[in-house]
């Protein structure tokens, strides 16, 4: 946890420097152009907090994600899926007892080679220089091609008006309108302020590690170098940037 904070202090510092140089141009330039954000989830640490929903609640509150009871019309940015389903394991009996039948966190992988971006007919979804796969909700026409293209089921479509299903509404972040697609934005609005994603900050067990993969000294690079990690469906060539440390 403290490691994540340290990483962020460094990032905030460089963001201020970039803002200073950008000020001459009449606006601050984005500070994150040379970074590659990624996430590592320490699955065992996460499982220690059985039934914990801190990251899910924090994310869904910060982004006005509605709680729609009808499973067909559900909208979700981060949620839990059984380990066997997440990693498409055919024979669950052979899974280590520590993980068998347990649930792991899933959300947008912010792929390095995202199929959703490739298919979007209006460039309403695109990959930023820092690796965030972003959505422009103003431009989305609601064709749902990206939903079909995502091999991880990370994208939700607003089949109904989400507003009646909001538990709390924050004015810090917009809601969505009916008929557009949405998903995890890696808290780009928080990254801009030099803050870590809401889920990472909310995790009481320090199970979520966020950082810059291009920085060889970053905590996430050190963790990935030291421990064995897996990714979802790496064989598809999408190069997901969410690592599950087993």
């Amino acid at each position: 946890m403290s490691a994540t904070r340290r990483c962020f202090l460094r990032m905030a510092g460089s963001a201020a420097a970039a803002a200073a140089t950008g000020a001459a141009l009449g606006c601050a330039s984005p500070a994150a152009a040379t970074r590659r954000w990624a996430m590592a989830i320490d699955v065992r640490k996460c499982l220690e907090l059985d039934g914990c929903r801190a990251c899910i609640d924090a994310c869904h509150q910060a982004h006005n994600v509605p709680a729609i009871p009808d499973r067909a019309h559900e909208v979700k940015w981060i949620w839990k899926e059984p380990f066997e389903r997440t990693f498409a394991i055919e024979d669950p009996d052979t899974v280590t007892a520590a993980l068998r039948g347990r649930e792991v966190l899933v959300f947008c992988n912010h792929c390095d080679n995202p199929p959703c971006v490739r298919v979007c007919p209006t460039q309403a979804t695109w990959k930023r220089d820092d690796g965030v796969v972003a959505i422009d909700e103003h431009r989305c026409i609601g064709c749902r091609y990206c939903v079909a293209a995502c091999p991880y089921g990370s994208r939700s479509f607003n089949f109904v008006d989400p507003r009646p299903f909001l538990v709390h509404t924050t004015s810090e972040y917009p809601t969505r309108t009916r008929g557009v697609v949405e998903k995890c934005n890696l808290c780009e609005e928080r990254l801009a302020k030099g803050q870590p994603p809401a889920c990472v900050r909310a995790c009481p067990g320090g199970a979520m590690l966020f950082g810059d993969l291009r920085d060889p000294d970053s905590e996430i690079r050190k963790t990935l170098a030291a421990r064995y990690s897996i990714r979802r469906k790496p064989e598809l060539g999408t190069r997901p940037q969410v690592y599950y440390v087993i």
């Binding site: 298919v119 007919p121 209006t122 431009r139 026409i141 609601g142 749902r144």
Partner: peptide
């Protein structure tokens, strides 16, 4: 195609932002 759009009023975005790497284009 039109009746399937979530935001039919924005359908001309396909022409405003032509995207040659999208098969839909």
């Amino acid at each position: 195609i039109f009746v399937d759009m979530g935001q039919p009023s924005r359908v001309l975005n396909v022409l405003r932002y032509p995207t040659p790497w999208s098969m839909m284009f």
